[in-house]
Design a protein around this nucleic acid. Structure first.
Lengths: 203, 203
DNA sequence: ATTATCATACATACATGATAGTATGTATTT
DNA sequence: AAATACATACTATCATGTATGTATGATAAT
């Protein structure tokens, strides 16, 4: 029952969508390919055809996830302003979007929670490590210029500032994802972001 | 080959120690009871005898882990000082101890990473949720008095301050655990803590 | 344009391995 | 003697991966 190329692409996307839901909900090991297949309304055969194996499926998922992340950052940078403005905007945007966009929420859950499960796969660990390092390094360069321009505190080491930023962002996201009913991350986004930024902005 | 009661307690502890190592390294699902047994130099029979099943073993582990956490907080509070001093101390202490104490590192790994894997077990999820809520609530009360005393910024909502604090702490710990070679969390502990505290302290 | 051929997109069924759990045996302690 | 603290051996389950089947779209030959 071969379908046309378009149909095939559609099925592949359906599998990816289903995988995102199931992986983010159950974790890597607990998620069964049978679950994903059922959710996508195909059989496991389709999954093996398109992705080779479970790890391959997960890998493609993570690739799209990480590209989404850099997309947000790119958008915030494009709006211009000082490094402080950009950082504030990134925090507020990432916090807010979680509450409104369920797909984004699933992606974040995936990379917040499942990631850790995957750290035993050395290839994954290394890939993630590299990725994090480069994000921090990039950010540190911007922090450096911010410091030189007097926008950020001059007693701040650029890398420390960058790590504080990423840690705070991830921490807030994780805290909220663990219990979304505890508070509204969208309503508190501005206030939370301000706490961290006040620690970075020169005064 | 029954051993004396003392011996039994000793083997039970050995199993817990082994479980901490294996769980924190491999995750819940990937960790095999056979591994844990081998590491503890017993057979799986001993595990089933003392803990009933895999989930029981994990449960007891987490119980000791959470008690360790509140122990650190208790210690920092006992040393006195303003809420700002206490918070700074908690951050610096928790950051520093990670690098020096491998057992603490394993416990943190467990609760940072494996926790998420366990969130599908509803009992666990609820337990963890309650725990987090109460930690935040407690902290918020202290933040409140800090605000009233003028130690912390007066435009800060107590719960926002509390969540920012916990999020930052967890975020830094997680960031470092994911890649301990990227930087020395002990050396940067003071600087990192200062960033967050400057965002909270009134000026 | 029709047909023969091949490649694609899956479904189905089976093989394999791994691991949790159980049942039972046994040596000590109490 | 009865319960404890395990070890050993066995069972059952389950999920991945693979091998194979099949219907159909794509493509080239005639």
């Amino acid at each position: 029952m071969r379908r046309t190329a378009e149909d095939a692409a559609q099925t592949k996307q359906a599998i990816l969508d289903a995988a995102l839901k199931v992986f983010s909900k159950k974790g890597y090991h607990a998620a069964r390919l049978a679950d994903i297949a059922q959710y996508a309304e195909v059989t496991r055969g389709a999954i093996y055809h398109h992705f080779g194996n479970k790890e391959g499926l997960y890998g493609e998922l993570m690739a799209t996830a990480s590209s989404t992340g850099s997309q947000i950052v790119g958008g915030a940078v494009a709006q211009g302003g000082s490094i402080a403005d950009v950082c504030q905007r990134i925090l507020v945007d990432t916090f807010s979007v979680l509450e409104t966009n369920s797909q984004m929420r699933a992606i974040m859950s995936l990379w917040m929670f499942n990631t850790s499960e995957m750290l035993k796969l050395e290839t994954f660990k290394e890939q993630l490590r590299q990725q994090t390092v480069s994000v921090i390094d990039d950010l540190a360069i911007h922090m450096q210029t911010g410091i030189e321009q007097g926008v950020l505190r001059d007693d701040l080491a650029p890398h420390v500032a960058a790590r504080a930023f990423i840690a705070f962002q991830n921490g807030v996201i994780r805290l909220w994802l663990m219990n979304p009913n505890a508070f509204s991350i969208k309503e508190d986004a501005e206030a939370l972001a301000t706490v961290l930024m006040r620690g970075l902005i020169g005064g």
